[in-house]
Design a protein around this nucleic acid. Structure first.
Lengths: 211, 211
DNA sequence: CATGAAGTTGGGCATTTGTCTAAGTCACGA
DNA sequence: TCGTGACTTAGACAAATGCCCAACTTCATG
């Protein structure tokens, strides 16, 4: 009917997949459902993608990309705490903006883990990398030990993840906005204490926590 | 063969389901896989449970129960911060103890949400209720406004959830132990600041955040 | 206008899934 | 010993799923 070039069709399928995955889960996201959501045919899907796995790979990349955007595109700050605040806020706002995106991300991460093992955690890894880089840049004027950066990145991820789980579970926008503030307050009080304490934690022995 | 009473068989199926769900996801947890894991027959499963859904309901209850146990059974403390610390530690330790349990919990929560909508968030709701109750008890000597209790419960849940996601993703026990300490430090610094600040947050207007 | 590439589609295939049926097999009280 | 009721199992069933094929439509270009 509509006669749409493959490139556009692929984008449609990715969007459709995000929607379907968020409401039916990874395994509930069948080719037929995705095709229907994209107002296309099952055969069309296989005309654009060799396999369902191929489509999911694109969805995966799309999600990764969005994270990078949000993290790198957050309001630039010259202080480490400022940058950390801005990034955390950015991610949480992005979650609130699109529940489908949030749900799909969490589905993808857990799917990738059990599907591809180590290689599957790429989204998470990449997001943490962008995170570390952004923090390091913000702290350029007043450098901080890499272990501290790692720790901050981890806390940021933890707060964002925790926020995401709750937001997905309850879906209450008003509550979510309040919780966003709470999380920012949590980050703030901890960061202040942490940066005052010095580079090394009391009981640190081995290499820094990877995440 | 073995001739096992239904009651025991059911318990076996629940354990098997937890294992299979954690490694294959909810939808990957097929009756045949669960049966195999329980060293039983597919037909046996339907002899014990009318449907797969029935089995999952039991798994759901099992998970809920374990949360209640962990929260209510955490070391009793007379101070609010002490109790909060103990509970957070208890939950995180429980996660580290059993990755299957952790994974299954997260799978169940997301499955329940998209499957049963509001009714599906029961695990999360019940856990938060136990949490609030435990905190309230700990603060009996020096009462705190219910909004503050709610806020603390939310932060506790957020830190636990965030920890869980990371632990599931990387599965590094050593890192997880370090991160457990970080999360405790985060809770500690925020709680101190929060309890010093007074009952109401600066920009609070509506009812307290539900979770 | 012819033509061939690009896009579109209905129908079909093998496999997997949840569930059920009917036929066992065992333990134990009468 | 002989039921009788509790447990066990192989096999079958329809429905759903990922993927494919062969035929059809459109349209820019020669």
């Amino acid at each position: 009917m509509a006669r749409i070039p493959v490139a556009q069709r692929r984008r449609d399928f990715i969007d459709a997949a995000v929607e379907v995955i968020s409401s039916h889960g990874i395994d509930g996201a069948t080719t037929r459902r995705i095709a229907e959501q994209a107002q296309a045919n099952v055969a069309m899907l296989h005309y654009c993608y060799d396999s369902k796995e191929d489509l999911f790979a694109d969805v995966y990349e799309y999600v990764s990309g969005k994270y990078r955007e949000v993290i790198e595109g957050s309001d630039p700050h010259t202080t480490l705490p400022g940058a950390a605040q801005a990034i955390l806020r950015g991610v949480m706002e992005c979650y609130i903006d699109s529940r489908s995106f949030t749900a799909t991300t969490f589905e993808l991460v857990s799917w990738a883990r059990r599907q591809h093992g180590d290689r599957g955690i790429a989204v998470y890894d990449q997001a943490l990398d962008s995170l570390r880089k952004a923090l390091q840049e913000a702290a350029a004027a007043d450098p901080v030990a890499p272990e501290v950066i790692d720790e901050i990145a981890y806390v940021l991820a933890t707060l964002a993840d925790g926020f995401g789980v709750n937001w997905l579970t309850y879906g209450d926008t008003t509550a979510a906005r309040e919780q966003m503030e709470v999380n920012c307050a949590v980050l703030d009080s901890w960061l202040t204490a942490r940066l005052a304490a010095g580079p090394a934690k009391p009981a640190r022995r081995k290499r820094a926590a990877r995440a």
